[in-house]
Amino acid sequence: MRELMALLAPVLAFAVAWGVTRVCCRPGSWLYFLDQPNARSLHVTPTPRTGGVGVMAGLLAGGVLVGVGGLGDLPLGAALAGAGGLALVGLADDRVGLSARLRLLAQVLVAGGYLALLGTSGAWLEVLALGVGLVWMGNLYNFMDGSDGLAGGMALIGFSAFAVAAALAGEEGLALVSAGVAAAAAGFLVFNFHPARIFMGDAGSVPLGFLAGALGLAGRESGAWPLWFPLLVFAPFILDATVTLLRRALRGERVWEAHRSHYYQRLVQMGLGHRRTALLAYALMAGSGVGAVLALSVGFSLQCVIITMCVFLHLVLGYRIDTAWRRHRIGAQTP
């Protein structure tokens, strides 16, 4: 009976996320916070930005059911609790606006608390790197939440890959929690795919990024996968956000300010549009996820080949987008 309840977790996560997100789309809802377009936005009409509330409600409901089924453990509970705390901070930021310093402090405290509860072993430098990685994952997911259907679809694909890999490793609790996150993202995506009726907002994007890192570490600690696995699964987001940040820093730009220079933003601006950009990203993410899962079942040499091929594909795609973008800008400047 308990296992049956736990198996229903993804279904409950989808249903709750769908229902809450639908409520957030209604103008009369107290969760109807509008995102006003600006010079850095890709949308042109005011759109509610509280879809993350639906995502978080769904995944937390599914997580509770996993715990009731007796398949949860401390790392999984801590990951969901940390995501819940970040969601509250994000909701407050979406509503009234919080300083970047306060948001960063909350993220550092959640990341540090999670690593302490996880009992991560290793030198202090490694633990520090993991903490920085968790904070960066939350922020990069937020940076990548800027086009219809992108962040929600990538969560659906990425956490589904986590669920498959965890199930193959016999980590049932981790598999069900990951499946619950994917299902909650799917419930939100119904309203977010182009043309989006609602955006995810900080209440969803930062917690999802944190969960990508937190569940990735939980899987490493349990022996379900090595550290490269979650990095490869979420490589499309990690590489886009990280390369963009580094290039902006090298140009002396204020990296904390909003901009439209991510690769996915360039694709939309060059005419590919929200829908086709999302579908291209889905294909790239699915390829990374499938490659990562397959790599877990082969020897070291083949793992290196798969990882190298995935990274090479991302580099080639990035180069081609850069080349097309330069031509686009030259064409736009030509009278």
Rank of each mutant, 00 (worst) to 15 (best):
A151I: 00
V55A: 15
A249T: 02
A332I: 00
A324E: 14
I306N: 09
P27V: 06
Y32I: 07
S99E: 06
V96I: 10
L208H: 04
V290M: 12
I330W: 05
L272K: 09
R197T: 05
V305R: 10
A9Y: 01
V16N: 09
S301R: 13
A196E: 01
S41D: 01
Q269T: 09
Q303T: 13
Q303E: 14
L125Q: 13
S121H: 12
R101F: 08
G187C: 13
A13Y: 02
L267W: 00
A6M: 05
A9R: 02
P48H: 05
G131D: 08
M5I: 15
L59H: 09
G158T: 00
L156V: 15
L86V: 03
L80D: 03
I330V: 13
G69K: 04
L156Y: 00
Y114T: 09
V305W: 07
D94H: 07
V89R: 05
V206N: 07
L156I: 13
A79K: 03
V68E: 10
V66T: 04
I321W: 09
P195T: 05
A78R: 00
L65T: 11
A151M: 01
L130N: 03
L231K: 14
T120R: 13
S178W: 03
T50Y: 01
C24P: 10
R95M: 11
L315A: 15
I238D: 12
G201E: 06
L250F: 12
F300I: 10
L315V: 15
R276P: 04
P335F: 08
G213T: 03
A249V: 10
L189M: 12
V177Y: 02
P37K: 00
L302D: 06
L232E: 07
W225I: 06
G63Y: 00
H259N: 10
G187R: 06
A61Y: 11
R2P: 14
V190S: 06
Y282K: 08
P207L: 01
T244M: 06
L250K: 10
A183K: 09
E3M: 10
H314R: 10
R327V: 06
A278T: 12
C25D: 09
L76Q: 01
G299A: 11
W136V: 07
S288R: 00
C304I: 13
I321S: 08
R248F: 09
R254C: 12
A87I: 05
R251K: 15
E171Q: 15
G122E: 00
P75D: 00
Q265L: 02
G19S: 15
A224H: 07
R247T: 10
A324M: 03
G119W: 02
A111I: 03
L317A: 14
Y32W: 14
A78T: 04
F300H: 11
A151Y: 01
A258V: 05
L231I: 12
G209R: 00
F188V: 01
G85S: 13
A169D: 13
T242G: 05
R2S: 14
G209E: 01
F312C: 15
R95D: 04
A165K: 07
A6V: 07
G170F: 02
I198Q: 08
G289R: 00
D322P: 09
F191N: 13
